[in-house]
């Protein structure tokens, strides 16, 4: 199952934190910064799987070879879009490649909701961000993977606010899922 979904930007500032277990706030922050340290040192060509951060690594050794699965989070998957990192921490029952696709669906859904989504949209509409995640994953289990149904589910909860007008239109686009132009980030 999925243990946590995190989104933070290139500077390590969280944009979304969702832990599917109850965790002390300070521990959450430590985990985020550990993962950020790991992820920010990786070149673009590197694979999208992280070694376990120290906080999680200590206890993962106890996995017994007799059972193929256990409850221990063992997989940290990430994707980097423009200014944001999307991270999923999961156990071995999830498929690593499928998780990468799941992140892609998440981002595409956000893109569909915000039209050319950028980090700013997510900052100012973090409730919608949570709602979108809530349509994809409930309690650590994936409930939906079809893009249109996710978007439909979020829209059913009310209108999705666009980014504030005076915050500038030159958003860093995820549209092509490429590297953005960095206009607003420098402001």
């Amino acid at each position: 199952m999925i243990n946590a979904v995190l989104v933070f930007n290139n500077a390590g500032q969280p944009r979304l934190t969702k832990f599917y277990t109850q965790l002390e706030t300070s521990v959450q922050q430590r985990l985020i910064s550990e993962i950020f340290t790991l992820v920010s040192n990786r070149p673009n060509s590197a694979c999208n799987f992280l070694p376990l951060p120290p906080l999680l690594a200590n206890s993962s050794k106890s996995s017994t070879p007799t059972t193929p699965h256990n409850d221990t989070p063992s997989l940290v998957t990430y994707r980097h879009y423009a200014t944001l990192y999307f991270i999923i921490i999961s156990t071995s029952t999830e498929s690593p490649l499928a998780l990468l696709d799941l992140i892609q669906v998440f981002v595409q859904a956000l893109d569909g909701l915000f039209e050319n989504v950028c980090e700013l949209d997510l900052i100012f509409n973090f409730e919608t961000l949570h709602a979108t995640l809530g349509e994809l994953i409930v309690g650590g289990v994936v409930v939906e993977t079809q893009l249109d149904k996710v978007i439909e589910g979020v829209k059913a909860q009310g209108t999705v606010a666009k980014r504030p007008v005076n915050e500038g239109k030159s958003g860093m686009s995820f549209g092509g899922f490429g590297r953005g132009d960095g206009v607003w980030a420098g402001r």
Binding site: N3, T21, L23, L31, N58, D71, T72, P73
Partner: peptide, 14 residues
Amino acid sequence: QTRPKKSLLEVDSS
């Protein structure tokens, strides 16, 4: 050292 410790994010399904 080896005492099985519950991992941080672990959801115990035992």
